[in-house]
Design a binder for these strands. Sequence first.
DNA 1: CCATAAAAGCAAAATTTTTGCGTTTGCGTA
DNA 2: TACGCAAACGCAAAAATTTTGCTTTTATGG
Lengths: 192, 192
Amino acid sequence: MIAKDPVQSRPGGRSSRVQASVHQAVRKLLERMPREELTFPLIATQAGVTPSTLYRRWGDLPQLLADVALERIRPIAEPADTGSLHGDLQAWTEQYIEEMGSPLGRTLLRDTLVATQEDQVTCACVDIIRDQLGIVLSRAGTRGESGPDVDTMLDQLVAPIVYRILYGLQPDVAFGRKLVEQLAEHLTPKQA
Amino acid sequence: MIAKDPVQSRPGGRSSRVQASVHQAVRKLLERMPREELTFPLIATQAGVTPSTLYRRWGDLPQLLADVALERIRPIAEPADTGSLHGDLQAWTEQYIEEMGSPLGRTLLRDTLVATQEDQVTCACVDIIRDQLGIVLSRAGTRGESGPDVDTMLDQLVAPIVYRILYGLQPDVAFGRKLVEQLAEHLTPKQA
DNA sequence: CCATAAAAGCAAAATTTTTGCGTTTGCGTA
DNA sequence: TACGCAAACGCAAAAATTTTGCTTTTATGG
C-alpha cells in the first residue's frame, strides 16, 4: 500500500481490516456515483470507520483513490503464454486495452496520476508494466527468440495506448494489433 | 476558457477582469507553494474576489487549475520554420520536451488530465498538438515533402514523450531526437 | 503475559464549501 | 444615449469538510 506514511509499521490485524474495508467502500461507492462526489465522510460511513482515520492514514482523497486504483491495476496473473513472443504481445496488448480502455480503467489511470505522492505511485505503475513485459521477453529468450527491450516497448506500445486512453481517443483492439505488428519488424523470430 | 458553464455568455468587462485576476493569482501562488496547498479561499484573497465567485464559476479547484493549465499550454507562436520537415520536427520536439518536461510542465499536463470536465479539456489539449503538427505538415506539403499523418505522429512522437513525462521517466532532448529519427524513416524527402 | 507505541475512535475547533439574496454591470434594444 | 434584462459578483449565514488534541484499543516484540 502507498499511504501517507510510506512505512506501514503495523500491517496486521485491525489495521488491515480497516484498509480492506475502506478499499471496498471506495470500490462500491464508485459504482454508484462519479468520483467527484466521493468524500471522506461518505467513504468513512460506508466503511464503518471514523473520517479522521482516513485523514490520518491517507491524507487526502486523491491519495486514497490512487491507492485503490493501484491495487486494481495490479495484475492477478502472469501474461498468457501463447508459444511465441508475437502471440504473447498480441494477447497482452489486447487485454491491456480492454482493461484500461474501459471507462473504469481510464478512471484508474487518471487516479494514479494525481496522487499527492505522485512519484511513488507512478513509479509503481511503470514497474507493473515493466514486470509484465519483462516476463514476456524473458520467456521469449528461453525460446530463442529476441526482441526489442522493455523501454522500446514502453515507448512504442504502451505509450500510444495510454496516451489515447488518457486523452479520450479510445484505442480499440485493432489499434493494438497494428502497434504490435509495427513492433514485430524489430524482433527476431526463433532460431535466427 | 473552459468553465463550469460551457457557454460563457458575458465575456467582457468585469467578468474578464475577474478571470484574469484569478488566473494570475493561481500562477503566482503556484510559484511559492505546491498545488495541494492551494485553496479557493487563498486564491480568492490573492485575486481580490470572493470565494463564492470561484465556486460558482469554476466549480472546484481541479477545474480551475485545468483552466489555467490549458491557457499556459496553448502555444504563443507557430512552430519554427527551419526549411525542412525533418528540421521542423526536431525543433518542435525539442521545444515541447523542454516546456513540458520541466516540473512546471509536468504539473500542467497533470492538471489538464483531472479536470472535472475531463473530456472538454483533454480534447482541447489534443487539438492544440494537432494544430501544431498540422502546420508543420502542411508546410512540408507546400515544399513537396510528404510524411506520416498527424495521428501517426501522435502515436510515435507525442505519446512516448508525454508518457515519460507523466510517469516520471524524464525524457531528454536526445530522446526526442531519437524519436524524430525513427519517424523520419517513414517520410519522403523533397522531390521524391 | 507485559510493556510499548501504532493506529483508531471521539469530539471540539478550524476551515472550506454551499446557498440565498441583494447589488453591480455587461449587453442587447430602442 | 438611455433603458431593461439577466449574468456575474459580493456578502453573510448555514452546511459540510478537514484538522487536531486527547483517549482508548490493540498489534507486536520481548
